[in-house]
C-alpha cells in the first residue's frame, strides 16, 4: 500500500515535469502566440488602451502591401518621450511585424510603413515610454486578397 502511494506520488510529479517542459521550450521559439510576444515586449508594465493610434484601412483589398501609420501622443521631450513602438499581428505565420526605436531627436512619435497580411485579423500596436509606461491600440482588419499566395 505504501509503495503504491509513493509510486503514484512520484509518477504524478514526473508527468507534471514533462508537461511543463515543452511550454518552457516553446517560450524561447520566436514563433510564439501573440499574447506571449506582446508580454515579452512590454515586460512587467501594465498596458493601457490609450495614446496610441494605429491607422490602417478597415477593409484591405491587397494583403501584400498594406499601409499602416502608428502615432503616439507624446511631447517627445528628454523627460517624456516614446522609446519604442512595436507592431504585432494575430494570424501571419510570424506574429512580429516590426519594432521601432525612437529618441527625443525624432521630434514626433509617428511611424509609417507597409506590411503584409495573410488573412482577416487583428493588429496590435504597443508603445513604450521612457518612464516604463506602456500604451496599446488594437485594430481589426478585413483582408480580401491575402499575402503569401503562390504567384
Amino acid at each position: 500500500m505504501k509503495s503504491r502511494r509513493t509510486f503514484i506520488a512520484k509518477t504524478a510529479g514526473m508527468t507534471l515535469a514533462i508537461s511543463i517542459q515543452p511550454a518552457v521550450l516553446f517560450a524561447q521559439i520566436p514563433n510564439d502566440s501573440l499574447e506571449v510576444l506582446v508580454r515579452a515586449y512590454v515586460g512587467d508594465a501594465t498596458m493601457r488602451e490609450a495614446r496610441v493610434k494605429l491607422d490602417v484601412a478597415p477593409l484591405v483589398d491587397n494583403g501584400n502591401s498594406v499601409p499602416v501609420e502608428i502615432t503616439v501622443d507624446s511631447p517627445m521631450t528628454a523627460n517624456d518621450h516614446v522609446i519604442g513602438i512595436a507592431l504585432f499581428n494575430e494570424k501571419n505565420p510570424q506574429h512580429n511585424v516590426a519594432e521601432f526605436t525612437l529618441s527625443p531627436r525624432a521630434g514626433r512619435a509617428r511611424v509609417t510603413t507597409r506590411i503584409r497580411l495573410s488573412s482577416t485579423q487583428k493588429l496590435v500596436a504597443v508603445a513604450k515610454m521612457n518612464d516604463g509606461r506602456c500604451f496599446t491600440h488594437t485594430v481589426e482588419v478585413l483582408v480580401t486578397l491575402a499575402a503569401c499566395i503562390e504567384e
Partner: peptide, 21 residues
C-alpha cells in the same frame, strides 16, 4: 535617432517614414 527591426510581415521594398528635428 530612429531604428527598426523588421520581420517577414514587412512588405517587399520596405518603406519607412519617420520624423526628425
Amino acid at each position: 535617432f530612429f531604428s527598426a527591426n523588421l520581420h517577414a510581415a514587412i512588405a517587399a521594398n520596405p518603406y519607412l517614414a519617420f520624423s526628425f528635428i
